[in-house]
Simulated scan of single mutants.
Amino acid sequence: MQNPLTPEVLADPVALTRALVDIESVSLNEKAIADCVEEVLRAVPHLATFRHGNTVMARTELGRNTRVVLAGHLDTVPLNGNFPSTMRGDLMYGCGTSDMKSGVAFALHLAVTLPDPRYDVTYLFYEAEEIESRYNGLTLVAEAYPEWLQADFAVLLEPTYGIVEAGCQGTMRAVVTTYGERAHAARSWRGVNAIHGAGEVLRRLAGYEARRVTIDGCDYREGLNAVRITGGVAGNVIPDRCEVEVNYRYAPDRDPTVAEAHLREVFAGFDLVVTDAAPGAAPGLGAPAAQEFLAAVGAAPIAKLGWTDVARFAAMGIPALNFGPGDPNLAHHRDEHVEITKIRDGAATLHRWLAPA
């Protein structure tokens, strides 16, 4: 197909957002959009451009003392009657408008139009953020070309509604299992009901008091909740097994080892198996580039209540923040949209931060 990312489109972050949204790129189907982005970047003389799978990286080599990363994922969740984009007044609707092609548009616009940024910049446009980690472009790049990710500071262009969301929570999933003994439901006293036994698990969850932790002025609010219950054999059988899946979102002052120990304390006496875990990320506000970025934004940061790929940078010792024009509450919704003013304001903020003094 003819590349819709023309010079005129690339010059305008709003037009560029819409053009990116109108290239369908559901997870694992990012080839078309990656092809378009790669073609644009390879034509820019001040950038060195590389590709791995459907992840495209371009970087300046200006000899600056500081290198920053602008990173955004190219994929979206499955379409839901919201493709292609539509405009309604100051709002652009469509799959990926908020999460996160408006953020990707920031990076691509700056990559093309700002040849002499105050820092050296690595622009990362990566695949498969919305699905399992094994497909994630940052994971694959970290394994194959870790040097692509090396920097002093990173901005992940996730939707934050134009404010800085610092760091991110850690997340852990675990299964708490209760056991019983099967019996015919007509003679239930001969068995032990494992589902009834899960009542104590639910009582502990209902009475759980989650921590609120302030780190670098950012208030992280934790949560521990049941997200799924599985049990039962048949309509006339007393069940001998019940599983309660729990999700723990914890502040970045805890690592997965501490988080698991906490869950085992909460559910002492029960069989608990951790099924998935990802560490959080500290706010990362101390780096000089971060301080200058906050000054460009002109508003105090807040804690990121959720997990994002800033944790991947934090694991490599690279402080990182979340910043993008979309509303995170609209991500994955059928009526996902972004405000035009937020796109323009956010692009101006990043330009103010990166433009040479």
Rank of each mutant, 00 (worst) to 15 (best):
M1K: 14
M1N: 15
N3I: 02
T6K: 01
A11M: 06
P13E: 02
C36F: 04
E39S: 11
H46L: 00
L47E: 03
G53A: 08
G53D: 15
R59C: 11
R59A: 10
G63P: 15
V68W: 01
V69A: 06
H73F: 06
T76G: 01
L79A: 09
L79W: 07
M92W: 04
C95L: 06
K101A: 11
S102M: 02
A107D: 03
A107S: 05
L108I: 14
H109F: 07
A111L: 02
A111S: 02
V112C: 12
L114F: 04
D116R: 13
Y126L: 08
E129M: 07
E132F: 05
V141G: 01
A151E: 07
D152C: 04
I163K: 11
V164T: 02
C168D: 10
M172A: 02
R173M: 13
R173V: 11
A174C: 06
R182Q: 14
H184D: 13
H184I: 03
H184K: 00
G199P: 03
V201T: 03
L205N: 02
L205E: 07
I215F: 07
I215D: 06
G217A: 07
G232Q: 04
G232Y: 08
R241F: 07
Y248D: 00
Y250M: 03
E260W: 06
G269P: 12
V273R: 13
A289M: 07
A289V: 03
A290P: 00
A290E: 05
A290C: 05
F293H: 06
A300Y: 00
A303H: 14
A314E: 12
A314Y: 01
A315Q: 15
M316L: 15
L321F: 04
P325Y: 10
P325F: 03
E339F: 02
W353F: 15
L354D: 12
A355V: 15
A357Q: 10
